[in-house]
Design a protein around this nucleic acid. Structure first.
Lengths: 307, 307
DNA sequence: CTGTTAGCGCTTTCAG
DNA sequence: CTGAAAGCGCTAACAG
């Protein structure tokens, strides 16, 4: 027996030695089946290669390890596959962390209805009865816009992320709100990758902006690369901003003006909530985590505004 | 019943309808236990946040999905924990992909002895009876050194990766070999991250080099950032090279001279071998995959050599 | 405090 | 071709 205190110590020792000698390892699948506890949780996400996720799940993993849970991450590939992946993974784990910001709402409802411990990360979905933890995208983006406005920017283009992503909607809402600060924003389709930022830049320039507000750091980096190719200097000719503050942001040239997303706090918070659900408690819904604006070198006075 | 052809089609249809209505989902753990097949494989790696892994496991994942296998990835945290993680994961999967370039050889032997389908990625370990797939680090690194030598470089410093990593040993061997080309290399401890490259740069400069050969792209990017801070221009004042060709390398300023590692081919190859092991075949050992040197903008003539 | 027994949810095998 | 029965490797809930 492993763990119980209601047992003869001598016997326990004898057993321990035997298992050691035979290199016995309990079979996880069988343990899980018999006890209904797998002592592991699953993480489901759309893209393993997005560095933004790394900080989050790393923090989650240390939390899980502390509580002796294993963390298994899976990436889904085809749109529509999400729910299937979740359900499938669910029979091997006790709970789920869903980082999939563009999973269908109905699928989320389905998960909620199943009553399996699940927490939603970085997605706020009213009408879905699931604990969620997310960072505030709106306020810091507005702050960023304010910064741009104070530098004299007016015509700006927003390089959008995935239209179905909650975060994208939040950020774009903030940018639009910034009309009140004098900004005149246009949205150009792009995505959360370097390549997408690079490729969307030409269309963005068609709107003759003085600043590019990229969905995230990666897109911003791609845009800066394209601008450089076109002979435009950042920030002298055009300012560029990011979002997330990935590791590279501060080391890029120019260092990115961006928003520092509390990835570690997010991952820890996510674990705490999941762990509570695992214990059968209903975790209380925390407020949005706040992210902070940081000015670095990729933004400057708007060109032609007498800055 | 699901699959068999020896069954009344009408009956099958009736069953299908019933399962659909009840939203029946077979329990993976139970299936695995009963049949000994989990239809899933595990990936074990030391650091989820290293972008180099992403391309590899992405390719592996599409292979796995094609063959209707699920891929579960786990990161281990504490050194020494590797084997335990592998063994634990093993009771939920049918095979393992080990990307852990610094796992102890004994642990590898243990895995091999268990006879579980396992393939080693990017690590060549003679004396361990496990199929492995890796890319050739030596030849392209030598080619890179040749490039540097032809530019007039002589005093170079190698910003090392983890000493226990196979890849680090291979790359350093090549750099040392390049003495024959006239290079005079010194090794400075660093690591495979931006931060480590940044931090090792000051010590590297103590050796008065004309070029920095970084263990990988990330370290190179970090070094370039530090050099810029110190007022040194790349490549005018000092050349810097990377390794891997991560997405960012070509978009950085200056674009990185580096080595393009065939990440997709590696991931695909790894899957093919694992799949063969899963079928009970012994996959034949493929040769090292080759990586190609690519010159971009971060290298130039050695300063002071009359280039 | 021990030893035994009945399942967890499925697959497989073996008689009908 | 179908139905019933026997486990996969473990844990839990019992009687001894």
């Amino acid at each position: 027996m492993s763990g119980s205190l209601t047992v003869n110590p001598e016997m326990a020792e004898r057993v321990r030695r035997a298992t050691d000698e035979l290199e016995y390892r309990p079979n996880g699948a069988a343990q899980g089946l018999a006890s209904g506890m797998h002592r592991s949780v699953g993480v489901v996400l759309p893209d393993l290669s997005n560095p933004y996720f790394h900080g989050i799940i790393k923090a989650t993993n240390v939390g899980a390890a502390r509580d002796r849970y294993r963390m298994l991450v899976t990436e889904w590939q085809e749109p529509g596959e999400e729910l299937g992946v979740c359900l499938d993974v669910l029979s091997r784990v006790d709970g789920l962390l869903v980082l999939s910001t563009r999973m269908e709402t109905d699928s989320l409802r389905d998960l909620a209805a199943r009553g399996v411990p699940t927490v939603l990360v970085n997605r706020v979905e009213l009408g879905v009865d699931l604990p969620m933890v997310a960072v505030d995208n709106f306020s810091p983006m507005l702050e960023l816009c304010q910064h741009l406005a104070s530098l004299g920017h007016r015509r700006v283009v927003y390089l959008a992320g995935s239209p179905s992503a909650w975060q994208n909607r939040e950020r774009w809402k903030a940018v639009q709100q910034a009309r009140i600060l004098g900004l005149d924003p246009v949205m150009v389709a792009s995505d959360a990758t370097i390549e997408a930022g690079y490729e969307a830049t030409d269309e963005a320039l068609g709107h003759d902006p003085t600043a590019l507000i990229a969905f995230n750091d990666l897109a911003a980096l791609g845009a800066i690369a394209r601008l450089r190719e076109l002979g435009l200097k950042t920030p002298e000719d055009i300012s560029v901003t990011g979002f997330d503050d990935v590791a590279l942001a501060r080391y890029a040239d120019p260092a990115l003006t961006t928003i520092v997303s509390p990835k570690t706090a997010l991952g820890e918070q996510a674990w705490m909530m999941l762990e509570a659900s695992l214990r059968g408690e209903r975790p209380e819904q925390p407020p949005l985590l706040s992210a902070t604006f940081v000015q670095r070198a990729s933004t400057g006075p708007a060109k032609g505004s007498g800055g």
